[in-house]
Amino acid sequence: MLSDLQAALRTGLLGRDDAEARAAVANGDGLAPDARIEIYRNNVFQSLVGVLAAAYPTVANVLGEAAFRTVAAAFIKSRPPRQPQLSAYGGELPEFLAALGATRHPYLPDLARLEWARNECYFAADAAPLDLGLLGAVPPERTPLLRLSLHPAVRLLGSRHDLVAIWRERLGGGGRAQDAGGEGDHYILISRTGLEVQMTELSAGAFTLALGLKLGLTLGRAAHAATLSEPAFALEASLARLLSHSTFTSFVLSDPAEEVRS
């Protein structure tokens, strides 16, 4: 049966037992079946390692080519692609790296999260950023009732490591100067302005504000949460910063009565 043959090849190619696959391959005068299967195994792994290296260039730089190849191959064996859309393949690599445990680079899983967020941002749906004129027309007393929709390309990432500095350093193939990173928390907005993926450092308050709006809170409630995370939180400046990076696409004004109830 064709389905059995294909299952045997799949098992053999992914590096498990290939006895059944070898038995199915014609054995003539030329190259032996295992060497023929090995050509395909190389194609499968080489192409998928390449896909992961393209999505995670700085993780690959940190690990070095050989170690990245080893980690990527282990990842491919344990989580092969489930769909032929490779721009969506590899999102589980950060968790996979975290599960591998402590490495010489404790920031590595977070760096991978940043790269995946950049990847998702790059391929996300297009949408026109919020028309600031419309926002300006909302009467000031009603602005706390605004619910703002985040742009589909926006991602928010918090980390204990100075990821943006590490990323910039490593993308150039550069060294370890920044690896120690600034201590303390870092809050990153990943967004697409025009067609460019951008990374912006936010204050704890601005990050909480964006996160609250993403979760569907009104501007008033999200701002309150932001004040709790950053006592000196300044709503207008934070909102302006988010708006300048195409963070939102639209808004609705929620019903005041509903706000009282909730």
Partner: peptide, 24 residues
């Protein structure tokens, strides 16, 4: 073929040229 058991192998793998495969 490149899909088996829902796994996408990212290579253009050869078929056995049989009448079953032809129907498929």
């Amino acid at each position: 073929w490149s899909v088996s058991g829902g796994v996408y192998l990212n290579d253009l793998l050869p078929l056995p040229y049989t009448s079953e495969a032809l129907d498929i």
